Simulated scan of single mutants.
Amino acid sequence: MGARILKRIIYILPIIGVICFTGLVIYGYSKGIFHSVESLQNFIKQFGEYAVFIFIFLQILQVIVPILPGGISTVVGMLMFGNIQGLLYSYVGLIIGEIIVYWLARYYGKSFARLILTKKRYLKFEKMLDRPEKGIKRLMMLTLLVPFAPDDLACLVAGLAELPFKEYMKILLIFKFWSVATYGYAILFLFNRFLIH
């Protein structure tokens, strides 16, 4: 019964995240927070040194339980801390999150995947598991290189398919930054184009 309730909470969190994000954007825009990058950064500075740690923690959580659609949280970091620093903080948080996912998948197996994935995504996930080790490596590289591809699924598969942790980390550290930067700059362009004047 507890697992069923937890699963429902995990499914509802992304919806709540989108609603909260939309509400924050509307509120921020009406208060002038999003009128310029400087006004947004001044707003964030109110949280002091804790803002960085809160953001990194949210990025770690984002990997395990996606609260916002992919890329949005990275853009928030870029707007808060500047493009380069925001990307680096995002990258660090996501890497830590992907390491946790790998070990959770390794330890709990398919039951962990069933808990965090919808039925549709779980079916995709099971198909990915049938690949040999070389195929898992290629899958990880491909999903990390192609914008908006399901790289979180590939990382989950790597944990369950028993891809050696050393190999997993090599691929993740090299290709994840490209993925984060591509998402971030694409969504930042749209954000700048339509919200910030």
Rank of each mutant, 00 (worst) to 15 (best):
I64V: 14
I64D: 07
I64C: 06
I64F: 09
V65C: 10
V65A: 10
V65M: 08
V65N: 12
V65W: 09
P66Y: 07
P66S: 04
P66V: 04
I67V: 15
I67W: 05
I67L: 14
L68Q: 12
L68C: 11
L68M: 08
P69D: 03
P69N: 06
G70C: 06
G70E: 14
G70V: 11
G70K: 03
G71M: 12
G71Y: 11
G71N: 08
G71A: 13
G71E: 10
G71F: 13
S73C: 05
S73L: 15
S73N: 14
S73H: 11
S73Q: 13
T74F: 10
T74R: 01
V75D: 04
V75K: 06
V75T: 15
V76H: 07
V76Q: 08
V76W: 14
V76C: 08
V76K: 05
G77F: 02
G77I: 04
G77L: 07
G77E: 11
G77N: 08
G77Q: 04
M78G: 06
M78L: 05
M78T: 05
M78N: 00
M78D: 01
L79Y: 09
L79R: 05
L79I: 15
M80S: 15
M80R: 01
M80P: 00
M80A: 15
F81Y: 05
F81I: 10
G82F: 04
G82K: 00
N83H: 01
N83D: 06
N83V: 15
N83E: 09
I84N: 12
I84Y: 11
I84Q: 11
I84M: 12
G86V: 14
L87Y: 00
L88E: 06
Y89L: 11
Y89S: 06
S90T: 15
S90L: 07
S90W: 05
S90M: 02
S90R: 00
S90F: 06
S90V: 13
Y91E: 13
Y91A: 12
Y91M: 07
V92C: 08
V92R: 00
V92H: 05
V92E: 04
G93L: 07
G93Y: 02
G93N: 08
I95G: 05
I95H: 02
I95S: 12
I96G: 01
I96F: 10
I96K: 00
I96N: 03
G97C: 06
G97D: 08
G97H: 04
G97S: 03
E98H: 09
E98Q: 09
E98S: 14
E98G: 03
E98Y: 10
I99F: 09
I99T: 13
I100W: 01
I100C: 09
I100G: 12
V101N: 12
V101P: 00
Y102K: 01
Y102I: 01
Y102F: 15
W103E: 05
W103Q: 02
W103S: 10
W103R: 07
L104Y: 11
L104I: 04
L104N: 05
L104P: 10
L104F: 14
A105N: 02
A105Y: 01
A105I: 00
A105M: 13
A105C: 12
A105W: 01
R106P: 00
R106V: 00
Y107R: 12
Y107W: 07
Y107V: 07
Y107K: 12
Y108Q: 09
Y108S: 03
Y108G: 00
Y108I: 04
G109T: 04
G109L: 03
K110M: 07
K110I: 02
K110L: 10
S111D: 10
S111N: 03
S111M: 00
